[in-house]
């Protein structure tokens, strides 16, 4: 009896999973140009940059980031006030309009990587998973560039 119930629930869960993936927010998302700067050891936080393009007809909301390179990863925003003072704070959820592109680039939005699990070494790469409001995900490989790098194309 319990065995049958387990099978039934598993099938239900799989079917549910498939139906989600059919309609998932992640299906409309294209992530490009993911890069990061090399780090000195692991004591300092790192930052990752990328662009997120919504190719679909609906709003898509990015709610979180997962990666195995850091114990905590969040989207943060650097901003500079009219006195020239910069500060950095969690950016919360990022809503992306249909056909819109959100750029995470130096001096603005970035993925803040806190508690590095290993040094970020130039020439290597790590995986970052973007989590959307419906639970769907997109994984992207982040290239680690030089310590003084300015972007993926420069």
């Amino acid at each position: 009896m319990i065995g049958k119930l387990t099978v039934f629930l598993t099938v239900l869960a799989l079917a549910w999973g498939i139906s989600i993936s059919v309609l998932a927010e992640a299906d409309d998302i294209v992530v490009e140009g993911a890069w990061s700067r090399a780090s000195i050891g692991t004591s300092r936080p790192g930052a990752a940059y990328l662009t997120i393009r919504n190719t679909g007809p609906e709003y898509v909301t990015l709610t979180g980031i997962r990666t195995d390179i850091a114990t905590r990863s969040e989207i943060h925003r650097s901003s500079t006030d009219d006195q020239g003072v910069t500060s950095m704070a969690p950016a919360g959820e990022i809503k992306i309009a249909p056909t819109d592109t959100v750029s995470l680039e130096p001096g603005g939005l970035h993925v803040m990587l806190m508690g590095l699990q290993r040094p970020m070494t130039e020439g290597e790469a790590f995986w970052l998973t973007l989590v959307f409001s419906d639970g769907s995900e997109v994984s992207v490989e982040v290239s680690i560039l030089g310590f003084a790098a300015r972007g993926p194309d420069i």
Binding site: P45, A47, S78, P106
Partner: peptide, 17 residues
């Protein structure tokens, strides 16, 4: 400060350029 992941390395790399 050196624990600054975004603005400071960007400023230093701008200045280097």
């Amino acid at each position: 400060f050196t624990y600054c992941p975004d603005i400071c390395p960007t400023t230093l790399s701008d200045i280097s350029v």
